[in-house]
Design a protein around this nucleic acid. Structure first.
Length: 570
RNA sequence: GCGGGCAUGGUCUAGUGGUUAUGACAGCAGGUUCCCAACCUGCUAACCCGGGUUCAACUCCCGGUGCUCGCACCA
């Protein structure tokens, strides 16, 4: 037995087919893992619980988009810029730095330089922050996205494996807007793989190169942010507010308090914090090992207004498992700017139609046309955009190409226009909770892994919440006799016929050994068939967490199992 | 990417320039027993890859790969 709990846990996970290194017969690849037969069921249940947790809300739907993403999408989202930084290494001390950080103050926009440009600037005596040397080597891009091409031939379109699922939801905004009858708020969830070519993946399941994410994009009208009654969440949670703000320091409070004190800056964010806590408890995370940490203003992306991480504590310390961010209108706006699409907006109907009166310079096209020829359309457009009308004519009108033309009084008529506006188009804001499924699964396993002893021997039990247990029951014939086996098979098949329930049969070796095996993979209930079972149709039910047993009929077992939890039998 | 450590059955491990390469647990078959890892018998199953040194390499050397720990990096 290893000295460290984390090694004993990891070893158990391999041994029992929960989580294992991928491609092991070829040496394995850091940052890639397999879920074995037991682990895959646990993960499936976590993901299903997550989908159900949000979609039962009513205004949230599930979507599914490609992992392959054209370059243009990720240019607009900022990922191509953010994820392709140039790295340089100091020749004497081997420290690695981001080139754009070193060149701040030397160049206006160091991010825009290519490798050669960076090399050239670095020769101008840029001093290594770690040592006094000024020699640099190895300017190379740090590619955090996996690049590929769409199209088999060399001229294929550049693309990347998605670094997050979120962009797919933004692409689907027009379809979602129609689906929800053009009314905010609404949301979309998506689970699936994301890819980041981490420089140095470490810590087992915590930093992966290919991982499962579960993201919710909740689209809201910023003027009417939704927030259900937070008094439905009376429990305190641990929060660590922005260290640079007025509430620094760890404290426990309810989400309602945090919102009313201005610690949480947005009501919808407060609501998602509460909902996130609910989810963690549902899947069996230990609530005392959960905390919410607010990003400091320097850590936050420039567009975000409030961002909280939900951190879970386990063998790797506090680990960010969920990020809840108010991304404002940033994403939709960027895609509108980059694509030119006009479909990324929502309509805000006014309570009362508004009359707007304004002065305009109405173009006289009979004069403007011949005067400006092929620039005439631009002139008309520019006139209509004037927010401030000139006091005197003629005046210089700025065109969209930057040039200006003289507008004389015969070209326009000054008049007052009255328009009735029934509403307006605006870019919705997005609140995004983004969950790292693998990290959550790890913490579920970590929190459930209980080391006890039996008869002086070490004994491990995975106290998984029934909602995420790999099997609902284990069916164990006490003897390996044909009649008992047959009986057991029938019970397993009845269990399996209950929707979403799964049973597992084990007839190998002694009964104690079999209990130990199913305890280790977290099966909450063991059903044992003995001689009496064949006579009177009863079985023994054993509870994993305290080894208590009761006897009941198979019919009761099946009925209780299909309704809910077997614990009511105890 | 740099530096250190490591690499033996499913898991945890012992060990050697020439061995039939330990042991435990797990697993399989049979026996026995039957409600908490019992016991007996038998069995399956391993030296990361490539090159070099050598009569002989799992062992020594070099290279690679991978893992791991520090450093750096980490929307």
């Amino acid at each position: 037995m290893s000295e460290r709990r984390i090694d004993r846990l990891t070893s158990l996970l391999r041994r029992r087919g929960v989580v294992l290194p991928s491609f092991e017969i070829y040496g394995g690849v850091s940052g890639l893992i397999d879920y074995g037969p037991v682990g895959a069921r646990i993960k499936r249940k976590v993901v299903d619980s997550w989908i159900d947790h949000w979609t039962s809300q009513g205004d949230i739907v599930e979507v599914d988009s490609p992992t392959l993403t054209p370059e243009a999408v990720l240019v607009a989202s900022g990922h191509v810029g953010e994820f392709n930084d140039l790295m340089v290494t100091c020749s004497s001390c081997d420290s690695a730095f981001r080139a754009d950080h070193l060149l701040e103050g030397v160049h206006d926009n160091p991010d825009s330089l290519d490798a050669d440009g960076v090399s050239e600037l670095l020769t101008n005596g840029i001093v290594c922050p770690a040592c006094p040397d000024t020699k640099w080597s190895d300017v190379r891009p740090m590619n955090l996205m996996f690049a590929t091409q769409i199209g088999a031939m060399s001229k294929g379109r550049s693309a990347y494996m998605r670094p997050e699922t979120a962009q797919g939801m933004f692409m689907l905004f027009p379809a979602l807007f129609r689906h929800f009858k053009q009314k905010l708020p609404f949301g979309a969830v998506q689970t699936g793989k994301g890819y980041r070519n981490e420089i140095s993946p470490r810590q087992g399941m915590i930093r992966l190169r290919e991982f499962d994410m579960a993201e919710l994009e909740y689209f809201i009208d910023p003027e009417y942010p939704p927030c259900p009654d937070l008094s439905a969440w009376p429990n305190s949670v641990t929060m660590i507010p922005d260290p640079d703000g007025g509430h620094a320091g760890e404290k426990a409070m309810t989400c309602a308090e945090a919102l009313s004190k201005g610690i949480i800056r947005h009501p919808t964010v407060a609501w998602f914090l509460a909902k996130t806590m609910d989810f963690m408890v549902d899947v069996g995370v230990d609530p005392t090992k959960v905390r919410f940490r607010q990003h400091s203003s320097t850590e936050m992306a420039h567009y975000a207004e409030d961002c909280w991480d939900c951190e879970l504590h386990g063998e790797h310390g506090w680990v960010e498992c969920v990020g809840i961010a108010n991304r404002t209108c940033h994403d939709l706006q960027s895609h509108e700017d980059a694509s030119g699409s006009k479909l990324l907006r929502a309509w805000r109907q006014y309570d009362e139609p508004r009359n707007e009166v304004r002065d305009v310079l109405a173009p006289v096209s009979a004069v403007i046309g011949p005067s400006f020829k092929n620039h005439a359309a631009d002139v008309v457009e520019s006139l209509s955009r004037l927010t401030k009308l000139p006091d005197d004519l003629p005046f210089q009108l700025q065109l969209s190409d930057g040039s200006s033309v003289e507008i004389s009084s015969d070209m326009v008529n000054r008049r007052t226009e009255e328009v009735t506006l029934h509403g307006e188009w605006f870019t919705p804001h997005v609140i995004e909770p983004a969950f790292g499924i693998d990290r959550i699964v790890w913490h579920i396993l970590d929190h459930a892994f209980t080391e006890t002893s039996k008869e002086g021997e070490p004994y491990s039990v995975m106290r998984l919440n029934a909602a995420v247990a790999p099997y609902d029951v284990a069916v164990l014939p006490l003897f390996d006799k044909p009649k008992m086996m047959e009986h057991a098979r029938k019970i397993v098949s009845r269990v399996n016929s209950i929707p979403s329930r799964k049973g597992e049969m084990d007839s190998s070796r002694s009964i104690g050994r079999r209990y130990a095996r199913v305890d280790e993979i977290g099966v909450p209930w063991a059903v044992t068939i003995d001689h009496d079972s064949l006579e009177d149709g009863t079985v023994t039910i054993r509870r994993r967490d305290d080894q208590k047993q009761i006897r009941c009929s198979v019919d009761d077992l099946i009925e209780t199992l299909s309704k809910g939890d077997l614990s009511i039998l105890f």
